[in-house]
Write a protein that binds this DNA or RNA. Structure first.
Lengths: 211, 211
DNA sequence: CATAATAGTGTCCTTTTGTTCACTGCAATA
DNA sequence: TATTGCAGTGAACAAAAGGACACTATTATG
């Protein structure tokens, strides 16, 4: 794709790249010329033309400072960025607080959006306790929560019950809501007072690291 | 340092940032105006002035397309990139094959390096079977493997035994190597022939998604 | 109510910038 | 030797872009 450059062309390409990096915008022909002691813009222009023709540079708009270096590295970073979502890691889930209030954010994680089915508004939450151990969710795991108010049978949800946050399996039996732990040590919780119960979101992912 | 922006100013800053990111050079006043239906360059100029005064933008040279965003914005994308590592997802682990041969790669995932202790040479592996269920690793989970030849007691390792890949807990008792499943259904495997045994790597992370 | 602060219009002006053209010099090469 | 490709000069020109000014409209606030 990209053809070989002459030494001079390479120098000029490097200058454009560095200038752009430092300043945040590309140089004009005259600025390039000044740097290389090329007094005529035409001399510069022919170098640019060569760089464009050889596939190292873009110069589409004819107006000033519109040189753009074609760099797979940079493009890659753009593509990568598109697929990356940043999730806040929430320290505590409490009633009354806006969940993502700044004081609740413990950190951030970046994750490939292809690993998540939904990506809007998700956040990470560190697991406390071992009540979901049989579902493969251990203490200190990081669960990824997709905020939603409803749930269906079998969903693992993060919910507020009596102003306390828990993560359990959501089940409805005979019109009663149960929060079912996945650990023989604990018993299902029957939600008696629906007023004091609300679903924060559904667990859509689990992440754990060793050491 | 940076003062609060009005909504409009925020919009315009965002546009400049995005434009610059996409094109490789910043927009002109008229381009900004066109995007926001501001017909006069002066209207745009005052926004720019405000952004500069509030410390979000640089506009030193008076010539065209010389806006430069001060924010971590651009830097952020670089910083973010630095923290992102791309892991190949390996379909099968087999003897004799170079592990990361192209035909073995099923996909890629991006992940925040802060979530990983080690980041060199790691790869993702889809879990088959339920032998590690008590360690919270379920079938179809994606484990992140750090390649290494050695292991210590208690490590969860991916290993080749008789040309077959397994994931088990690594244990040495009385000079014998055992591969211990974390599931009552299965019995520990004693490694009798060390010749036919090799450790691929250590599991340093687990990732799972629901639905 | 008066006063800022923010937001926008339209016009005119000057500078910057890219474009074009004709011409020169040099080195490699067929 | 003639040709080709690269590199540069100098001047003249039109388009693009930023700057300035006077004026209007809206909204919040003391």
């Amino acid at each position: 794709m990209k053809e070989e450059l002459t030494d001079r062309q390479k120098e000029i390409l490097d200058f454009i790249q560095q200038y752009t990096f430092v300043n945040g915008f590309p140089p004009t022909y005259r600025e390039i010329g000044k740097h290389f002691n090329i007094s005529s813009t035409f001399g510069v222009k022919r170098h640019i033309y060569a760089l464009v023709k050889k596939g190292h540079l873009t110069n589409e708009s004819k107006t000033s400072r519109t040189l753009s270096i074609i760099d797979e590295g940079l493009n890659k970073s753009r593509q990568v960025l598109d697929n990356i979502v940043g999730l806040p890691i929430v320290g505590r889930v409490a009633a009354g607080y806006p969940l993502l209030a700044e004081e609740n954010i413990e950190g951030n994680m970046m994750i490939d959006s292809s690993l998540l089915s939904s990506k809007i508004g998700c956040f990470g939450l560190k697991v406390r306790g071992d009540s979901m151990i049989n579902a493969g969710i251990l203490e200190n795991d990081l669960v990824i929560v997709s905020p939603q108010k409803e749930a269906i049978n079998g969903d693992i949800v993060v919910a507020l019950l009596h102003d306390e946050a828990t993560m359990k399996k959501f089940e409805i039996r005979e019109n009663k809501i149960y929060l079912v732990p996945e650990n023989e040590k604990y018993k299902p919780i029957e939600v008696d007072n629906v007023e004091e119960f609300s679903i924060i979101g559904k667990v859509i992912g689990v992440f754990r690291t060793y050491n």
